[in-house]
Design a binder for these strands. Structure first.
Lengths: 338, 338
DNA sequence: TTGTAAGCGTTATCAC
DNA sequence: GTGATAACGCTTACAA
């Protein structure tokens, strides 16, 4: 390996090592002739500065950390994850930053990861994804003044810099769409009770009903998890009602797909017998039959804002606001068509 | 921020800074009393060593680099990608390594990324995914003796350390499965001609036919890309033949899904009228109707081997072999059921 | 056993 | 303008 240092380049160029550094950093007060000489040698030998030495000296690593709060197994099948990483790499790259990714595997290792990345100065700042509501890292990170941004929500919302989807708006968007299509009896199949996403989308659902002057029917609302099986079970339950809903808002595409399967199995046509809409616009939506309408989350925008805010924080520019909300977008497909 | 250094810990413990370092590195020849004193201070102040300084000194960053040869947009929707990253994080983490991910966005930036990660010493080694057949980075990396591992193939195969799926075996597995089900006229819808994956799976298809004593029918083989549309078009073409195939091997799940759609649209029942099998066992397979049989690629195993070989290389242990082949696994679902 | 000191490869502050 | 020189925080001979 070519263990080249500025020292060696300096010798070969017959200047001091300091001059080599100046040339590299683009210092204007360097004689043009020397500069050319140095640049030639650098090019000839393919010298590249050592990032470790640079970061030790400059106190900047040029690397962002992304910590995802899930087990590798959960990550493996999550389309959200790859989209997020891809977008962060893209935006961070534009600003000259690299990305270091870690997963908070087990609960006990969470602390370790945070230490390993931030306090060891391996990264300049952190993007945390979907932290727990009561995450013990928050107070510490805040206290130590480390640059970090949340994707998700943390209470109180103005305590930290965060970016989040407009989940209330998303729930409303889905429900209003169904109402516009003429539905009057609309069910909501939620995920785990207490989770922000689920509760917020539920709030949006309630609001849309209310604003349209529709009655809220508690028997049309179910909670559970994010699985296809959960959607399947609940859809069956809803279809067993004396007065079943004509449309379903499912908190997640997978849940919606479960509902879709239940309807098809029972010979209920979608959307004629029952319309179904999901959330996240995962790639699945296009390939199920009928294609599934969904409220898309703008992952790229989420990533873009998170990255920008974090880099602003790192580079001591005061970001404009602490909390950013990214609106969602309705993707109409056949499952809610007329 | 607590700008603690070993120097400060040393002062507080009333020992030399070198002793603090020894305690941290677990040097046995340190007086037990001193060790305890130092450890107490470290704990009390929550000192964590600076990784930048460590790596400058030790010439090790404790970070692996992953370079994926695709644009962020392609990555975003690719389920292979998140599974790969998740698995690498997991295995690298077990060995105390972090992961830095980069995408070779544009062609011209490939060189830059390689420089940015390896030659700047930001990472200790590189995992390259699906490099081009004639990737100009290979010779340079080899020449400079940097530790790196390929996921994919590069000719000659023993020039570099690499891990790959058994694509020939995969093609054979899919075809043999269909033959066992009684099919005699089996089509192959491939991707881009010349791509290793496609050619290899095609070889496996040919071999399986041959070994079963079945005739090879050129009109049953189509090439194109990895899109659903390509599968759709080719399936229609196949079904238009005077003697259409009774089964299709599609080089990718998405292509298979396209074929599935074509069959359904034409009222050809799957699998009764035409059986279909794809590759990669993407999450889609479970959610299309009927669920799609697929040959699963063992991404976790791929990642595990790549990570282990790379770390062996970095830590100067000679890996056992240069080329690793990971077998694929048949996942039977209804689309090839009887 | 412990401390002193010499780097690791940069950047940045001095004098010249 | 340019060249010494002092950090940056750590590891590791070498001394004591």
């Amino acid at each position: 390996m070519p263990e080249l240092t500025q020292e060696q380049i300096a010798k070969l160029s017959r200047v001091s090592q300091a001059t080599v550094s100046r040339v590299l950093r683009g210092d204007p007060r360097v004689n043009e002739e020397l500069r050319q000489r140095v640049l030639a040698v650098i090019k000839k030998h393919g010298y590249v500065p050592d990032a470790r030495a640079q970061s030790l000296r400059s106190q900047r690593t040029g690397t962002l950390g992304l910590v995802v709060h899930r087990s590798p197994k959960q990550l493996a099948r999550d389309p959200f994850f790859s989209a997020l990483i891809a977008a962060i790499i893209e935006f961070a790259g534009e600003e000259g930053y690299h990305l270091c990714v870690d997963a908070a595997r087990a609960l006990q290792s969470r602390r370790a990861i945070y230490e390993d990345l931030l306090r060891t100065r391996r990264v300049d700042g952190l993007i945390l994804v979907e932290p727990q509501t009561q995450d013990e890292r928050m107070p510490r990170l805040l206290e130590e003044g480390f640059p970090f941004v949340l994707i998700g929500r943390y209470e109180p919302t103005d305590a930290v810099y965060s970016v989040d989807n407009d989940n209330v708006g998303a729930g409303r968007l889905a429900t209003e769409h169904l109402i516009r299509q003429g539905h009057r009896r609309i069910a909501y199949i939620g995920g785990p009770r207490g989770l922000f996403v689920c509760e917020d989308r539920y709030q949006g659902y309630r609001k849309a009903l209310e604003e349209a002057g529709l009655d809220y029917a508690p028997e049309l609302v179910g909670w559970g998890d994010f699985s296809e099986a959960h959607g399947y079970r609940w859809a069956n339950r809803l279809l067993d009602l004396p007065q079943p809903p004509t449309a379903v808002v499912a908190v997640d595409d997978l849940v919606a797909i479960g509902a879709l399967r239940a309807a098809k199995e029972r010979g209920v046509a979608v959307p004629q017998g029952m319309a179904i809409i999901g959330f996240n616009d995962t790639p699945f939506c296009q390939y199920v039959d009928p294609p599934l309408s969904s409220v898309a989350v703008e992952i790229r925008t989420l990533a873009q804002i998170a990255t920008r805010v974090l880099i602003d924080l790192i580079e001591d520019r005061q970001p404009a606001q602490r909390r950013h909300i990214v609106p969602c977008r309705l993707v109409e497909r056949a499952s809610t068509g007329r």
